[in-house]
């Protein structure tokens, strides 16, 4: 039942993602899609084929690993979020959308992750301080007790869209993720398909969308598990254009 991954290889053996130095961990899986540029110099799959929109409504799988995300931990983080005009969710495991379509995920009392806007392709987040967590100078760019995290590199970002999102998740995850038990803005830090992941219930242009953040090195694995799981619902890979038009 697994959709042949070979069928997703480009004809010419070239991968558009390799035009940028910064690449998604599963970029080979989206090679047949048309690419588009995101803030930070990475590329994203824009469109696979004319059926993208239909698939996205049923059960779409979208690789957003190229889209900017950031994270901060520590008591000083609310100050940073406030300065940036971003919302602060009321308690851990809640997410809230910002004005530009960025999402703030509160993972613990002091840990917040930010997911770049699909509509402006991460432009708002690109202005945040301390984005280069690899550089220890980042500590000088943020408020006291606000440690930039490595979300852009430690985690891959896949998104599951459409009416069958919770049916698909029910094949992968032992937590009740049906809409009534897991309403918009809920976060589950849990195990799915036997790896750890962070699942966020979002809505993009009226479309139900669950973002899944997983160990970056397991992104390719999770992609194959999701593609296998959506077959039953006539789903499949989709590009960003199918979600944001």
């Amino acid at each position: 039942m697994t959709q042949s991954t070979e069928s997703l290889q480009p004809d010419n053996g070239q991968f558009w993602a390799e035009a940028a130095l910064s690449r998604s961990a599963c970029y080979r899986r989206t090679a047949v899609a048309q690419p588009m540029l995101a803030a930070g110099g990475q590329q994203l799959p824009e469109r696979f084929d004319p059926q993208d929109v239909e698939r996205a409504k049923k059960a779409g799988v979208l690789d957003l690993s190229g889209l900017l995300r950031a994270g901060y931990r520590g008591a000083g983080t609310p100050e940073l979020l406030g300065n940036a005009g971003l919302p602060i969710p009321a308690r851990p495991n809640l997410a809230a959308a910002g004005a530009d379509g960025d999402w703030v995920l509160r993972l613990s009392n002091t840990e917040y992750w930010l997911l770049g806007s699909l509509t402006n392709r991460g432009e708002t987040l690109a202005k945040l301080p301390g984005l280069d967590a690899c550089d220890s100078g980042c500590l000088d760019a943020t408020p006291d007790a606000c440690y930039p995290l490595f979300c852009m590199d430690s985690h891959g970002w896949l998104m599951l869209t459409g009416e069958h999102v919770s049916d698909v998740m029910a094949k992968l995850c032992g937590v009740d993720l049906r809409e009534e038990a897991f309403p918009l803005g809920s976060i589950a830090q849990t195990s799915l398909a036997r790896i750890n992941g962070i699942i966020v219930h979002q809505e993009i242009n009226g479309l139900t969308a669950y973002s899944i953040l997983c160990d970056n090195a397991s992104t390719d694995y999770l992609w194959t598990a999701l593609i296998d799981a959506v077959q039953e619902f006539d789903g499949g890979p989709v590009g960003l254009a199918s979600v944001v038009g």
């Binding site: 851990p92 495991n93 613990s108 032992g174 937590v175 589950a188 849990t190 195990s191």
Partner: peptide, 11 residues
């Protein structure tokens, strides 16, 4: 206390 009721296999 942080994540609510979960299967014990997550712990």
């Amino acid at each position: 206390p942080l994540n609510g009721p979960r299967n014990i296999s997550e712990f």
